[in-house]
Design a protein around this nucleic acid. Structure first.
Length: 306
RNA sequence: GGUGCCAUAGCUCAGUUGGUAGAGCAAAGGACUGAAAAUCCUUGUGUCCGUGGUUCGAUUCCGCGUGGCACCA
C-alpha cells in the first residue's frame, strides 16, 4: 500500500504561513487545506488576512471562505470536512498540506477529537442566560452534581468550561466525562509537522504592521458591513470586536487599532504555548525555506523505507 | 544667558518624614476536547540620571554636572 503524507504547517499569526505554504505546495504538489477557524468565513477576508485571489490561484485550496458567518461551524465539523477532502486527494495524490493557526482544529485532524453531540442552540442560550443572571456559582453546582469526575478536572473559574460540562450532561443525559476516550485516532496518513517562528520582537513588529495594512486595505469598511451580525460567534474575533467597539462609540479608532495589535500579539503567544508541548513539531524560521524543503523530503524518504 | 520645575520598571507616573521601592498600561509564563482569533489562571521585570558632600546608612537632604520642559531676556 502506498503511503500518504500530510504536511502540517503551523505557526503563530503573522509569522508568514501563507507564502511558505504556497512554496511548499508547489514543490511537493500538495493541495492546501486551511486550518484557520476564521478564514473559513467568506465575509471576513481582510481582518483574517485570508489568502488573496492571486494566492488562491497559485495552489489548490480547500476550506477557505467556504462558510458564511451566519452558519455555525465547529472543530468537529471541520475534522470531518478535512478528513473527507483528504480522502479524495489521496485517491490520486500522496501529498497534502494542512496550514493554519487554529491549534485545536489542527489537533482534531492529526490525532482526532472525541465525539460530542452538536450543541443545541436553545439550551446554550438558556445556559448563557443563567450564567449571566445567577453567576458561575450556580453552573458550578450543577456541574458538580451532573458530573463530579469532570468537575474535579476542569478550571472552575472558566465559565466556558463549566458551561460546556453542564450543557453536554443536560443535552445527552450522560456525564460529560463519558464521552472522553483520550485515545489518539488512527489516521490513514503520516503527518510531517513543520512549525514557523521568529524572534519574538520580529514577530510582534510584523503583527503590528500587518494590522496597519489591514486598516489600509479597508478593515473598517469590511467590519461596517458585518456590524449587523456582531453577535455571531465567528465575529467574536480579534480585529472585528475592537472595530465594533469603535462603532459603538466606546473607544476611538486609534485605540481600536492599538487593541487589535495587542490582542493579536497575545493570540500569537497563546498559540506558541499550545504548540510548545507538541514535540513532533520541527521548528524553522520562515526565511530558511530550503531547510524546510529538505526536512520534508528527508521525512518522506525516511518514512517510505523503514 | 537668567529663573523655576522635572529626571524612579519598556511607557505614564506614585512613593520613601533618610533603612535599596509600587500602581496602571505594555510585557512574561501557563492551562485548554464542538465558542478555540474563544475562554481562563499566575507573575513586578529597577545602577531610583551622573558625580561629590552630610550621615552608621542617600533613590530620598545639600552642592555641582548632564538632559528635558516652562517662563523671562
Amino acid at each position: 500500500m502506498r503511503a500518504n503524507y500530510l504536511i502540517v504547517l503551523i505557526g503563530p499569526t503573522g509569522v508568514g504561513k501563507t507564502s511558505t505554504s504556497l512554496a511548499i505546495s508547489n514543490r511537493f504538489n500538495a493541495p492546501i487545506i486551511s486550518a484557520d477557524s476564521r478564514q473559513f468565513f467568506k465575509e471576513m477576508k481582510i481582518g483574517t488576512a485570508a489568502p488573496t485571489p492571486n494566492q488562491l490561484k497559485e495552489a489548490d485550496h480547500y476550506l477557505v471562505g467556504h462558510k458564511s458567518i451566519t452558519e455555525r461551524y465547529s472543530c468537529g465539523m471541520f475534522e470531518m470536512d478535512a478528513l473527507s477532502i483528504l480522502n479524495n486527494i489521496y485517491q490520486t495524490n500522496p501529498m497534502a498540506m494542512l496550514v493554519g493557526g487554529s491549534m485545536l482544529y489542527i489537533d482534531a485532524v492529526c490525532s482526532g477529537i472525541d465525539d460530542f453531540p452538536t450543541p443545541d442552540a436553545e439550551l446554550r442560550e438558556s445556559l448563557e442566560k443563567q450564567l449571566k443572571e445567577d453567576g458561575i456559582e450556580a453552573l458550578r453546582a450543577q456541574a458538580k452534581l451532573l458530573d463530579p469526575e469532570q468537575y474535579n478536572k476542569i478550571d472552575l473559574k472558566n465559565p466556558q468550561r463549566v458551561l460546556k460540562v453542564v450543557e453536554v450532561c443536560l443535552q445527552t443525559g450522560k456525564p460529560y466525562s463519558s464521552f472522553l476516550n483520550q485515545q489518539k485516532k488512527k489516521r490513514p496518513f503520516t503527518t510531517i509537522k513543520v512549525g514557523l517562528n521568529r524572534p519574538r520582537e520580529e514577530l510582534y513588529s510584523q503583527i503590528n504592521s500587518r494590522v496597519d495594512q489591514m486598516i489600509e486595505d479597508g478593515l473598517v469598511d469590511e467590519a461596517k458591513k458585518l456590524y449587523p451580525y456582531k453577535g455571531s460567534n465567528a465575529l467574536k474575533t480579534v480585529g472585528y470586536r475592537e472595530i465594533f467597539e469603535y462603532f459603538d462609540g466606546k473607544i476611538t479608532l486609534d485605540k481600536a487599532i492599538e487593541l487589535i495589535k495587542r490582542n493579536s500579539r497575545r493570540y500569537a503567544k497563546r498559540q506558541l504555548t499550545w504548540w510548545a508541548r507538541d514535540n513532533e513539531i520541527k521548528w524553522f524560521n520562515p526565511e530558511e525555506q530550503e531547510n524546510i524543503m529538505e526536512f520534508i523530503e528527508t521525512e518522506v524518504n525516511k518514512k517510505q523505507s523503514p
